[in-house]
C-alpha cells in the first residue's frame, strides 16, 4: 500500500479520496494506513531477516495453549538440523526465555509491562540484543492474546496460530481477525481429546474455512510427541520456500492482506 500510485484506494473507500475544501480550513486527504509507522518498521525487520536468509515465524494464541511447550519440543527435534533463535513476549517474567535457554537456544525476552501485544519496534529492539549469525529460523512468541497481536505486523513471514483442544472449537468464529491471519493453525494438546467430549477438530477446521482461510490445520501434542512430524515437515518446507524467495530477491508477508494488496491482486 502506498500514497503514490493510488493502490490504497479500494471500492470501499474510493468515494472518500476527493474532498471539497471548506472555507477557512484546508481538507487534506491522507488515506494512509493508521499503523504506517509500525508497518514501515516491520518492513525494515523483514528486510533484515531476508538479507540473512532467516525465516521469521510469529506464534500467536491465547495464554496457556502451549506455545512455549511447542517451541521446546520443536527446538529439541530440530537441534541437529537448523540453528534457531527465539524472541519471547510476555507482560512479566523471564520464565519463558529461561525455558528456551535451558535447551541451549538463543532467546531474548521482551517484557511488555502492561502492553497486550508485540509491535515491530519492540521486535526491532530485541533484534539488537541478539546474535543472529547462522540462524535459520527465528520464532517470535507473541503475548498470549487472541485479539491485539493480530493487528500488528512484526516483520515476520508467517503467522502460526495455536488452538488447544481445551478451548472451544468455535474460537476461529469468535476471534475472526486473529484466525484470518493464520498461515497455519495448530490444534494442540490433542492427547487430551480422549477425555474431552466437547471439542471437535473437524468443527474447528470448518470455522477456519468460514473465514476464507485455506491454511493447513495440523493436529499435535508437543508433550506426548504426537503429530509433530507433520509440523516439522511444514517448517522444513517453509524454510526451503524462504530460501528460494531470498535467492531471487523476493519476500513474503503473512496471509492477511492489506486492502491495497487485495485491490492489486484483484485487478491484476
Amino acid at each position: 500500500m502506498c500514497n503514490t500510485c493510488g493502490c490504497n484506494l479500494t471500492p470501499g473507500n474510493q468515494r472518500l479520496a476527493f474532498k471539497p475544501v471548506a472555507k477557512g480550513a484546508t481538507a487534506v486527504s491522507v488515506l494512509k494506513g493508521l499503523l504506517a509507522k509500525n508497518d514501515d518498521q516491520a518492513a525494515h525487520n523483514r528486510e533484515h531477516f531476508d538479507r540473512r536468509g532467516i525465516l521469521a515465524i510469529n506464534l500467536m494464541s491465547s495464554p496457556g495453549s502451549g506455545k512455549t511447550a511447542l517451541l521446546e519440543a520443536t527446538l529439541t527435534a530440530l537441534k541437529n538440523e537448523f540453528t534457531c533463535a527465539v524472541i519471547e513476549g510476555d507482560l512479566e517474567t523471564e520464565n519463558d526465555a529461561e525455558r528456551i535457554r535451558a535447551l541451549g537456544v538463543t532467546a531474548h525476552q521482551i517484557v511488555t509491562g502492561t502492553a497486550c501485544h508485540l509491535d515491530a519496534h519492540l521486535v526491532h529492539d530485541a533484534l539488537h540484543h541478539m546474535n543472529l549469525d547462522g540462524v535459520d529460523i527465528l520464532f517470535i512468541e507473541n503475548v498470549g492474546n487472541l485479539v491485539c497481536p493480530a493487528s500488528f505486523d512484526l516483520g515476520q513471514h508467517l503467522n502460526v496460530t495455536l488452538l488447544s483442544v481445551t478451548e472451544g472449537d468455535d474460537k476461529p468464529a469468535k476471534y475472526p481477525v486473529m484466525f484470518r491471519a493464520a498461515d497455519a493453525m495448530l490444534l494442540t494438546k490433542t492427547d487430551l481429546l480422549a477425555v474431552l467430549d466437547d471439542f471437535d477438530p473437524d468443527q474447528a477446521e470448518a470455522h477456519l474455512r468460514n473465514l476464507a482461510n485455506p491454511a493447513p490445520v495440523l493436529r499435535l501434542s508437543a508433550r506426548k510427541n504426537l503429530g509433530m512430524d507433520a509440523w516439522l515437515a511444514w517448517l522444513r518446507e517453509q524454510l526451503a520456500a524462504q530460501r528460494a524467495r531470498v535467492a531471487i530477491g523476493q519476500s513474503r508477508r503473512p496471509a492477511i492482506q492489506s486492502d491495497g494488496q487485495t485491490f492489486h491482486s484483484a485487478s491484476a
Binding site: T10, V28, L34, P172, A173, H207, N210
Partner: peptide, 27 residues
Amino acid sequence: NRLLCGACGDWHTQIVSGDELLLESVE
C-alpha cells in the same frame, strides 16, 4: 466470521472491503 460467497456459498473468497484501517482525511 462467515466470509463465504453469498451467491454460491464457497469459502474460496477474497476480501474486497472491510479490513481497512486508514487515516482518511484531516481538516
